[in-house]
Design a protein around this nucleic acid. Sequence first.
DNA 1: CGATACATTGAACAAATTCAAAGCTGGTGG
DNA 2: CCACCAGCTTTGAATTTGTTCAATGTATCG
Lengths: 212, 212
Amino acid sequence: MYLKKIDFFSGLDEESLQKLDHMSTLLKLDSGNKLFYEGERSESLYVLIDGVIRMFKTDSKGRQIFIHQFTPISLIGELATFEKIPFPATAEAVVKCEVIKINFLDFSQNLLKNSDISLKIIQSLLEKVKILSNVIHHELILTTEGRIAKLLVEDIEIFAQIKHTKIAAILNTTPETLSRTLTKFKQMSYIGLDENNALQILDKHSLKIFYE
Amino acid sequence: MYLKKIDFFSGLDEESLQKLDHMSTLLKLDSGNKLFYEGERSESLYVLIDGVIRMFKTDSKGRQIFIHQFTPISLIGELATFEKIPFPATAEAVVKCEVIKINFLDFSQNLLKNSDISLKIIQSLLEKVKILSNVIHHELILTTEGRIAKLLVEDIEIFAQIKHTKIAAILNTTPETLSRTLTKFKQMSYIGLDENNALQILDKHSLKIFYE
DNA sequence: CGATACATTGAACAAATTCAAAGCTGGTGG
DNA sequence: CCACCAGCTTTGAATTTGTTCAATGTATCG
């Protein structure tokens, strides 16, 4: 059974795995499909086992505010489900995804008392707190310049891998601002182009000043 | 023993309470004292049992970004302590406070396996996720106008209780912007003054539009 | 080539802060 | 009793940061 292979459930005995199998279904999402929408309510937990799920909020002008991308294995949607409140954000498949959907009532009655499971839940919640704490730091403390500088230092490759419009979306800014900022960093010789026309860091120290 | 009275530890038996007593100390903070600073590391958990603790982050220009105020009984600082990362925010006593400081190593070795305690931890973490999720909604989705409208509808009394400079700080805006926005809402007859010169809501529906 | 999508640049605009000045107000000492 | 002071609050003007809109440039791929 595939559940057995998932680290999240490794602490379960055979009987619990059987139970889990009965209270869960495997969802397959195509790129662009929504696992759930902000504002919806749910009685299910979701475990991402394959693919990438993008979480975002939508503001009053319809703009998407990027929150996080989840990769396997991640428990998703536990806040809304445990607390019986609407989802605070929308979950969208970035690529084809496989997600286990678990009935929360069954789960909480049968598996939550398992101490391995509750430790996994604690770990997952700590991860969420960390993610949200980072979002707050990113969006409230750093300037747009700082966020761009941070991404340049921490993951320069992404600038060659995906379109700058998508990078701008991940950074919660516009392609125009991203372009202007990169131009500015180039003029200041903090970054430059290598022989393949790919961005490279020339002055990491100066870039770090923008976000540390 | 005072520990017994604290709901957070109500699930502990006498022996565990004894252990807890030995691994913890009671801190008394005066108003303005810091429980910990953003960036510090810690090997302790804190449980607020009396008073009010304000959490804030500091941006590059020295401005304080208000995150949350904790009231008893609240577990504070568990992200940094569990994850062994620096505190993401500063914790300051708003009034005289009493805080139990618990050695994390002892706690995790002796009490974390207690399933009542781990459920309390889960509850506390869910609360944190909810708080941070609300902060993100507040600061990233709502405009300053929306935040002011929301506070007016949800807690109009506070405008008579504390200085507008402090309210501005809680709303992460400036006294000037708060004043201008209140003036605007008055002009539009969304709010007005009652016989005691206290603010009152005149048109809740219109105010809600700013934040819903 | 030419089409199309992406990237860049300029100019106007928007939201909110900052700085400076003036207006209130409530408690205190003469 | 009331004038005055200190600490809010309000108002105006300039500034900042970043977005939006429009136009132009550029690269790639059939």
